[in-house]
Design a protein around this nucleic acid. Structure first.
Lengths: 132, 132
DNA sequence: CAGTATCCATCTTGATACTG
DNA sequence: CAGTATCAAGATGGATACTG
């Protein structure tokens, strides 16, 4: 009789994996930019500081909840800064931080790859779907 | 009375946004690499062809369902090829396609950025959480 | 203007069991 | 070995209503 059954081993593997995930910086970044709205917000802010209402207009289709949530998480990660002007009505501007700016080229590279190769991906999909 | 109420306008915006999403190649790519397992599978395959069982062992914590699902989607996108050897028991090897290989440098860049800057992100998170 | 709070549908994920 | 099928649970996101 083994000291560990299959379920136990699987649990161990899952825990080891979680630890790996938690310590893997690339994984964390991917989790970050993989958010549905993060890249859109960063792209929008690439043109300079924007007000909350500007962002919600530029990123059509985003709900207040998601926009706020995305901005909060980016602010928490130090990628975006938030500045409140206590006028009436209140005005809030968002801006990429220096750290956020270093992430920009990365997103541009992704865009460039996509623009070069996504047509091939689309073709591959059609071929695959037709074959299936 | 306006010809469109607020709900109507929001719906229009959402549809326009969907159309934008559907036609935006960068968006599609982000959707692709943002998958929880895609980057891990591609990283694993960076070292060369791997069998299904090898992959499931290297990417500890992935369920059969998710591994299969991820491999299928990558195959569909033309990023990974699947080769079946009809022996007994059957053997299946997965390998990056030329297209998949062009995606590699991108992922390496992401890794490089992460390794350089994620400590700052971690610090920013701690500061934010402490302030809050 | 710039949010917060709540509810609810849906999508995703994983555990489990079974198969050629 | 390399899957497929099914079901339950948690995460996700959007609609809606309200506020300093």
């Amino acid at each position: 009789m083994p000291t560990r059954d299959a379920a136990q081993r699987r649990e161990d593997a899952a825990q080891a994996y979680d630890a790996y995930l938690a310590s893997c910086p690339a994984r964390q970044l991917v989790d970050r930019i993989s958010d549905k709205w993060v890249t859109l917000v960063i792209s929008a802010l690439a043109d300079g500081p924007q007000r909350y209402s500007d962002l919600s207009r530029r990123i059509a289709g985003v709900s207040q909840k998601m926009l706020t949530q995305t901005l909060r998480s980016l602010e928490r990660d130090g990628l975006v800064s938030r500045q409140v002007t206590p006028s009436v009505p209140v005005r809030v501007d968002y801006e990429l931080t220096p750290l956020g700016l270093t992430l920009m080229p990365l997103i541009l590279h992704i865009k460039a790859w996509a623009e070069c190769h996504m047509d091939k991906v689309a073709t591959a999909r059609q071929t695959y779907d037709a074959t299936k």
